[in-house]
Amino acid sequence: MPAKEAKKKGKNDTLAVANTTYRITYQSKAVNDTLTKPYKYRDDEMRLDISADGVSKFYSYSAAVRMKLMREKIEKGDFDLRDLPKAGILSMEFYKNYPEKGKTLMLDVAGEAKCQIEEKMETPEWTVLPDSTADIMGYTCQLATTHFKGRQWYAWYTEDIPLDEGPWKLRGLPGLILRAYDSSRQFIFDGQGMEQPEGEPITLIKAKREKVSQKDFRRLKESYDPNDVLKQMAGTGAKIVIMNSDGSKLDKIDRPKFNLIELQ
């Protein structure tokens, strides 16, 4: 175990798995509907928390705030969640070197299923593009590219910050990745700042989750139909009425569009 786990005080079963040494903030964009052009992006603030032990967590700050506020409301018996902030562009929480060194852990949801995927940590095979420089966050960066997990990725990294880290699974360059995007620009992570938080842990919420593979996770995402859930609820005798934003009755919910960052 890369760091001693400690349970935080409170009603939630939250583990502090490491201490945050560096936090990089990325202004991020992603698109779910890849068929509609031009893309309709969703914006978010993604964070990469890194510990001195090599443990890191990549997550949506918006989703983290939403989850915290939702738990607080439910603990008070308030189940009206309409005033909560919108969820982030990526629902996953992605850990490197956890639950042990050389492993990764992804926590995500597929419909009603809470999933966890544990894998061996992989290193993309990068090609550094010569004569390519950019100034990002005041650091001189160089461009590298790789074909990884079904997408062609471009990453700007700086050797001024010698951390083998970056958004999501992107790593393996001689410096921190401050900007990354795929060739279709369906996912964009643009570094905005770095800080050194004092006393802030890298946390994990303990919950019942189904251990699945990436292949099974995609299958669950593709097969999810919210109308099946409504039918099951109706079978219990519950009266369910779904309304459009204009107040009219909605007979059927369209399947949510999704675009996984990992294609292979």
Rank of each mutant, 00 (worst) to 15 (best):
D108W: 08
S60Y: 02
T140P: 01
P130S: 12
E122N: 09
E112A: 12
D83G: 14
Q27A: 14
T34R: 08
Y59C: 01
P99Q: 08
L129F: 08
Y41K: 05
I74R: 15
Y95E: 03
K76P: 00
K96R: 15
M70N: 09
D131Y: 13
L84R: 08
P85M: 12
V31C: 08
E112Y: 06
E100D: 14
P124V: 08
T34L: 10
P85R: 09
K40M: 13
Y139N: 08
R71K: 15
D80A: 10
E125W: 03
P85T: 03
T145A: 15
Y41T: 07
E72V: 07
M92S: 10
L105F: 10
Y41R: 11
Q27N: 13
L81M: 14
L15H: 00
Y26G: 04
A63V: 03
K57M: 03
M137F: 02
T104L: 00
C115K: 00
S91M: 10
T14I: 15
K37E: 09
A144Q: 03
Q27L: 02
S28R: 04
P38A: 06
W153H: 02
K68P: 03
F94M: 14
R66K: 15
N19D: 15
L35R: 08
E75L: 15
D108L: 09
T140F: 04
G54R: 09
A87N: 07
Y59I: 12
G102N: 07
T104Q: 07
I24R: 03
V109M: 10
C141W: 02
L143C: 00
S51G: 13
D43C: 01
T127P: 05
V128S: 09
P130G: 09
Q142V: 03
E119T: 12
T146A: 14
Y61W: 14
D44V: 05
A144P: 07
I24K: 01
A113G: 07
I117F: 11
S60K: 06
D83V: 04
Y139Q: 10
S60R: 00
P99E: 04
M137P: 06
L90Q: 04
E45R: 14
K57C: 09
T133G: 12
K68F: 00
R82A: 11
E112F: 10
L90A: 02
G102D: 09
A110M: 03
G138N: 12
G150C: 10
T25F: 05
E75G: 02
D83H: 11
Q116R: 10
E93H: 11
Y22P: 01
